[in-house]
């Protein structure tokens, strides 16, 4: 009987020690106040990124016709020197610029033929479905270590894409007509193993009609 008592007492003490080291109790109002001050603001981060890094970084954008020529002749070199990606997959992103003549205004995009005419390549400027990490990653200056978790990092992409959908595309879409010439910068996503150059879609960062 005494042995059993000692056994239960020891078990209870152990349980209390483990319990004491397992949980802590605080005032909920204090916890919420502390969390509000340290919260990651994806909108502000995306705004700063756009103004201070992406816009100046566009000067380093690759000329799309030249890039396409290089991709056709020396794919490995093109991906190695001009593409960026945070992940380890086959999808990589290029920051590009180009001038094109609008050939069609479709429901989800606008088709343009790259100029000069000798290039003869058609690409699509995305105007409806702007998703993914192309713009965030194409510049190649963000690191996964800049964020405390992947959700914050993905929220930055979501905010950048939202800005493109709400601020960049609508004014262009309202004015653009067939045969207009547009100067654009943006990002493209290419698969380095299964490379398709006939279905290039540009996520635009800037769209300027230069000739009507």
């Amino acid at each position: 009987m005494l042995k059993k008592g000692i056994k239960y007492t020891v078990a209870l003490i152990l349980l209390l020690i483990v319990g004491y080291n397992s949980v802590y109790i605080k005032k909920l109002s204090e916890v919420k106040a502390a969390a509000a001050t340290g919260k990651f603001d994806a909108t502000l981060y995306a705004q700063t990124f756009w103004q201070e890094k992406l816009t100046p970084g566009l000067a380093k954008a690759n000329n799309l016709p030249e890039l396409l020529t290089l991709l056709k002749s020396d794919k490995e070199n093109a991906f190695k020197n001009y593409s960026h990606a945070l992940g380890i997959g086959n999808l990589r992103y290029f920051l590009i610029k180009g001038i094109g003549k609008i050939t069609a205004s479709n429901e989800n995009d606008i088709s343009v033929t790259l100029l000069p005419d000798s290039v003869g390549q058609e690409v699509k400027l995305a105007t409806e479905f702007v998703y993914g990490n192309a713009v965030r990653d194409a510049l190649g200056i963000l690191s996964i270590n800049d964020f405390s978790n992947t959700m914050d990092m993905n929220n930055v992409s979501a905010e950048i894409n939202k800005k493109i959908r709400t601020e960049i595309i609508p004014p262009f879409r309202a004015q653009a007509k067939k045969s207009d010439v547009v100067a654009f910068t943006g990002a493209i996503e290419l698969n380095q193993v299964h490379l398709r150059l006939d279905e290039i879609e540009v996520i635009p960062v800037s769209l300027n009609l230069i000739q009507k």
């Binding site: 949980v23 605080k26 916890v31």
Partner: peptide, 15 residues
Amino acid sequence: ELPSQDLFIGFTLLG
């Protein structure tokens, strides 16, 4: 979170 009691029960790694 126990809002009615204004209590927050946090857990350590062991917990």
